[in-house]
């Protein structure tokens, strides 16, 4: 079981970063974004696009744009592109919908359609093949009592640092406080002199950058597929709900827990030969926890007056 804990932490950090992004977007805009998975995949696919050497041609796009940049630079560019993409989604699609006062359910359906649409664009342009970043294979090393490759260990550390930074940003900076203010009431924020539209745009950009980063983590730890974001999306939702919808700290912990549940359940005796069912244990546990704590682990019941 301890063997699986390392894997669980790695899966957990992917879900965790993606959950924080999802939760941030939901809490500020009230949008349940099913296209979140596609932004996750965009991070990985763009990194692959930038970093792939000329001759491997695993990606269709390489035929007209062979770049072969350094991996870290590629990842950096990909994260920025994800931010741009998220910003454009808000400006072209979600802001006009909001101004037209389209209901939340309708917007949710829009995000589902968007998810399917973008996913199939990936299928066309990035092919349906399972791919990997052009990185050398590494041997596993033992850290404390977890076994993982040095690269994955660095991903874990990077993920933790990013989440601590997000936490600090939300708590102490002017923009972070404004995001929380818009979360409480967009109208009151406007009355206070805050341009809510700008704050929502910044939220879209930062949420998409985080999602892209989660995708890059997923690509490094596992592999890259056109539907990689969609495959992990359910676990991301689970992490968000488990931690308590709308709390960033909850999403971090919820995401980590879901990842650990999924991987550790592989080691349960009754799971032998049924590894495909590992998500079932994690999601089942989530349901049980929610039965006892409906607002999620860190969610707060509001005082209504």
């Amino acid at each position: 079981m301890i063997d699986q804990l390392g894997n669980g932490l790695l899966l957990g950090i992917i879900i965790s970063v993606a959950s924080v992004a999802l939760s941030l977007l939901y809490s500020v805009t009230r949008i349940v974004n099913f296209a979140h998975g596609e932004i996750i995949a965009l991070g990985a696919i763009m990194t692959l696009f930038f970093s792939n050497p000329v001759d491997s041609r695993v990606i269709y796009l390489d035929r007209f744009s062979p770049l072969g940049l350094d991996f870290v630079i590629s990842a950096f560019l990909a994260v920025i592109l994800c931010g741009v993409f998220g910003g454009l989604l808000e400006l072209i699609l979600f802001r006009p919908l909001r101004k037209a006062e389209v209901g939340n359910i309708a917007i949710l359906v829009v995000t589902i359609g968007l998810s399917i649409f973008i996913r199939h664009l990936y299928l066309i342009f990035a092919t349906g093949r399972v791919q990997n970043f052009p990185l050398e294979l590494e041997r596993r090393v033992t850290y404390l009592f977890f076994d993982m490759t040095p690269r994955n260990f660095r991903v874990l550390i990077a993920g933790i640092i990013v989440m601590v930074l997000i936490g600090l940003l939300l708590t102490f900076t002017r923009i972070g406080k404004a995001m929380r203010a818009v979360r409480d009431s967009g109208e009151l924020a406007s009355i206070s002199g805050i341009n809510s539209d700008n704050i929502i745009l910044i939220t879209w950009i930062s949420s998409s950058m985080l999602a892209g980063l989660a995708g890059i983590f997923q690509g490094v730890i596992n592999d890259i597929r056109y539907n990689m974001g969609f495959l992990i999306l359910l676990l991301v939702f689970a992490g968000t709900v488990l931690g308590g919808i709308g709390t960033s700290f909850g999403a971090m912990v919820g995401g980590l827990l879901i990842g650990i549940f999924v991987q550790v359940s592989v080691a349960f005796p009754f799971m032998e030969g049924h590894i495909e069912a590992k998500n079932a244990v994690a999601l089942g546990l989530m349901i049980v926890i929610l039965l006892f704590r409906p607002q999620g682990i860190f969610g707060q019941k509001e005082r209504i007056s």
Binding site: R180, A181, R183, D184, S185, L188, A189, Q300, E302, R303
Partner: peptide, 8 residues
């Protein structure tokens, strides 16, 4: 109503 930010 909603004249303060409750979580702040």
């Amino acid at each position: 109503v909603q004249n303060v930010f409750p979580s702040l």
